[in-house]
Design a protein around this nucleic acid. Structure first.
Length: 279
DNA sequence: CTCCTGTCCTGCCGGC
DNA sequence: TGCCGGCAGGACAGGA
């Protein structure tokens, strides 16, 4: 599920299967998920062609040829199925939106916990959309530099982990990769943001980028409830160093089990780290 | 402003 | 085996 690398992987899969395909049918199975879905959603999507697919933070943007863009967020448990020769009656439990394409593919948006988002907006208004307008720079884009990060941290008294999780500061980092990037940076997640030195900030900047790139390269990751977009299981077999590894030996410290991964709560979210390695 | 907590919802896991 | 509490990767609203 769905932090930046997983969303990027889903985007790539959608692109590979249905870019430039025409939507024949577009069917909603509920009128709201987390937020209400616009009442003209099916009318605005049916019989239009999907031109380009873009990722912004954890959002997938599906640009149609009628100057509208579908905004999709997978929330915590959302997944996309892309299947061929699927029968109308053969739906998965918790499918909320299903559309068929003229090349034989069916795309289904499935989300058991219904924390996901589905919306549509004029494409030329996309930057002003309430869900997108306050999101910070893409960590894999040119605006996200070590200097940018250092300047952000100077104003912040919140713990560093909370700060890199805040989408206003950096786009797309979630609870897993926040812990992983801090582990790789040797920085304790409880450190007050503005206490990081320039050198530490430069390391963190580099490790955020490398952590995300490694995960994208691995094809994204999954824990319990994320599937590859074509439904094939076992595609995402990604090993995290600290996430969900409470009481496991630190992979970087001595192998005698002296140092183990701790789990703490910050701003209501679980954080995993090695107090010996991360200072 | 910044920061933290509560909240939406279902599924899964561990304990009894 | 079944029931129940706790917890889950997001992100908004609202309060301190």
């Amino acid at each position: 599920m769905p932090e930046l690398p997983e969303v990027e992987t889903v985007k790539t899969a959608i692109n590979a299967k249905v870019q430039n395909a025409k939507i024949l049918t577009s069917q909603l199975y509920r009128d709201k998920i987390r937020f209400p879905i616009p009442s003209n959603f099916t009318a605005l999507t049916s019989q239009n062609t999907l031109k380009t697919i873009e990722r912004r933070s954890k959002y997938i943007l599906l640009h149609l040829d009628n100057a509208h863009t579908i905004i999709l967020h997978l929330g915590m448990s959302g997944r996309i199925y892309i299947e061929q020769n699927k029968k109308d009656t053969d739906r998965h439990k918790h499918d909320h939106w299903v559309c068929t394409f003229d090349n034989g593919y069916t795309l289904s948006f499935n989300d058991p916990r219904r924390f996901g988002i589905l919306d549509i907006t004029p494409t030329d208004n996309i930057k002003n959309h309430p869900l997108l307008k306050n999101i910070g720079p893409e960590p894999l884009g040119s605006y996200f530099t070590a200097t940018y990060l250092y300047n952000v941290l100077q104003n912040k008294k919140a713990p560093i982990k909370t700060t890199i999780l805040d989408q206003k500061n950096i786009a797309g980092i979630g609870n897993i990769y926040a812990s992983e990037a801090l582990f790789r940076s040797n920085i304790n997640p409880q450190r007050i943001s503005n206490s990081l030195s320039k050198k530490e900030t430069t390391t963190l900047h580099k490790e955020i980028i490398e952590t995300l790139n490694d995960a994208i390269k691995a094809g994204g990751s999954t824990l319990k409830d994320f599937h590859h977009t074509d439904g094939s299981l076992g595609y995402f077999q990604h090993q995290f160093k600290v996430y969900d590894k409470e009481n496991h030996p630190c992979p970087n410290c001595t192998c005698d089990g002296t140092y183990t991964i701790k789990k703490i709560t910050q701003a209501g979210r679980s954080t995993y780290f090695c107090p010996h390695k991360q200072k």
